[in-house]
């Protein structure tokens, strides 16, 4: 198939590993899947903090389950990426550790309090759900298939995140104020989650033409605003005055993009933000600390042990 054939055929779950696809398509799909898988891993670096903090045993179980799900999603997505034959999982994980791998902007900001739990588990995950739901119709079948499982489990996470927010916003005045403060920090990051509208340039345009993406950044952000602004307000959060939000003629919501800090966004996109260094550095240190295990497994395999079954 050449690229024109791909564009002509592009549709939901249209292409699978049995198709002979041009490198350009396979590279674009790999880029999306790798980004998505990396984001599951780096989201886990934030979420694991909440496990230790969880203020009830049931919440702790839910936080533990969520971390487990995220690792499972990463595993599934790396596998779907590998089916494209462009990059191995080891290469993708190595790139993530050495700072070349890219991941969602929101996961470049370290967290240090429970007030941040609903920001990640409700709003950021809710934003991710908006995007992931549309990826069930992506043209790379293994990706769409992974989304079926991911979306199902994310539904539980978002529900738990919403319950954490409800609990905070119906508790003491001090807790409500802290939650509002933290929300104000996170709100612009959430709006940048979808990227700038005018970035329908390089990757996105192509990704839409070949059916990898089915919905634009702008539409996804509208959908997020329409769904999550009322929810934020329902729990008593006030939407910050800046960035300005306005209603378009068709009744959908939009944001004045000039009000957002795009320098920070693009610095993050280069993994060069202060928080990027912190989060990627944490990943690197943790991976180096267990490098000896991976080396010993290689030794064990080359030693030709007689029972090569996986421990996992």
């Amino acid at each position: 198939m050449d690229i024109d054939d791909v564009k002509a055929r592009a549709g939901p779950r249209e292409f699978s590993p049995s198709d002979d696809l041009p490198l350009e398509y396979r590279e674009a799909a790999t880029r999306m899947l790798e980004f998505h898988a990396n984001s599951e891993v780096m989201g886990g670096y934030l979420d694991k903090e909440f496990t230790r903090m969880a203020p009830s045993l049931d919440r702790k179980l839910a936080c533990t389950a969520k971390c487990q799900d995220e690792i499972g999603h990463a595993q599934l997505l790396y596998r779907a990426a590998e089916t494209l034959g462009v990059k191995t999982r080891e290469e993708m994980l190595a790139d993530l550790t050495n700072g070349d791998g890219k991941f969602l902007n929101c996961f470049h900001y370290p967290v240090d309090s429970w007030y941040e739990a609903p920001m990640i588990d409700f709003f950021v995950d809710g934003a991710a759900m908006r995007r992931q739901a549309t990826l069930k119709d992506t043209s790379w079948e293994p990706y769409a298939h992974a989304m079926d499982k991911v979306c199902f489990e994310e539904g539980f996470h978002v529900k738990h995140g919403e319950d954490i927010l409800r609990e905070l916003m119906t508790s003491s005045k001090a807790n409500q104020e802290r939650t509002q403060e933290v929300f104000e920090d996170w709100w612009p990051r959430m709006l940048q989650f979808f990227g700038p509208t005018n970035d329908e340039s390089t990757h996105n345009d192509f990704a839409q033409q070949v059916g990898l993406k089915t919905v634009s950044n702008d539409e996804l952000r509208n959908s997020f605003l329409n769904m999550y602004m009322p929810k934020a307000e329902k729990y008593g959060l006030e939407i910050p005055e800046s960035p300005r939000i306005f209603e378009r003629d068709d009744g959908t919501m939009a944001v004045r993009e000039d009000d957002l800090d795009w320098d920070e966004f693009w610095t993050i996109a280069k993994n060069d933000f202060e928080g990027s260094h912190e989060q990627i550095g944490s990943r690197r240190r943790r991976q180096e600390a267990v490098e000896w295990v991976r080396e010993s497994m290689t030794d064990w395999e080359t030693a030709g042990a007689d029972s090569p079954q996986a421990a996992d």
Partner: peptide, 10 residues
Amino acid sequence: QIFAPTPEAD
């Protein structure tokens, strides 16, 4: 969590 040697071990 997230710190184990491989995704499978994790």
